[in-house]
């Protein structure tokens, strides 16, 4: 067997990349609580669950409270109004995410809920970010709007300003 020293020049035409794609697919089991929440959306109902220990109404519904490490007990229907807790206005398209910028991604806390839920805030003119961000901040009142034909997924509803700009 003969050996030769590593020759950088000889590798100048060597391939530098190896293309790979992961295409894993899943069928995630939802469990009864999340299933009931999604079913409620078809009836335009927003369902939370209350923790018997801390008594927070956890929305969207969860089968256990992670703070107390206790199962939740009662269903709570939360209101269709609430306040904006935090938001961002996205101007960049992220590869692999099928939504066109600009859009407002927000968390809002709805009446009767102790926690906030993520959703889009729609109905705002986003062409001028400075103007748009003067209209909304933490605490701005919002209302929930449902699609006319909810299909039982979280994008069935979104937020709009309670008092349109």
């Amino acid at each position: 067997m003969t050996t030769t020293p590593f020759d950088n020049a000889a590798t100048s035409s060597a391939p530098a990349f190896f293309e790979q794609t992961w295409d894993l697919s899943y069928r995630h089991a939802l469990g009864q609580t999340v299933g009931a929440f999604l079913a409620g959306l078809k009836d335009k109902k927003l369902l939370g669950r209350r923790c018997p220990t801390c008594e927070r109404a956890l929305f969207p519904a969860r089968s256990f409270c992670d703070r107390c490490h206790e199962p939740t007990t009662d269903w709570v229907e939360v209101g269709h109004r609430g306040v904006l807790e935090m938001f961002t206005i996205v101007y960049e398209a992220f590869p692999g995410m099928l939504v066109d910028p600009p859009y407002v991604l927000a968390y809002a806390r709805l009446d009767g809920a102790d926690t906030a839920v993520v959703g889009y805030l729609k109905g705002l003119d986003l062409t001028d970010v400075t103007k748009a961000t003067q209209l909304i901040t933490t605490g701005t009142p919002i209302q929930v709007r449902f699609s006319d034909n909810p299909i039982g997924q979280v994008t069935d509803f979104w937020f709009e300003l309670a008092s349109p700009a």
């Binding site: 089991a29 939802l30 469990g31 009864q32 089968s63 256990f64």
Partner: peptide, 8 residues
């Protein structure tokens, strides 16, 4: 297990 989520 289809009647429980992983988290559950």
């Amino acid at each position: 297990v289809f009647d429980q989520s992983l988290e559950e």
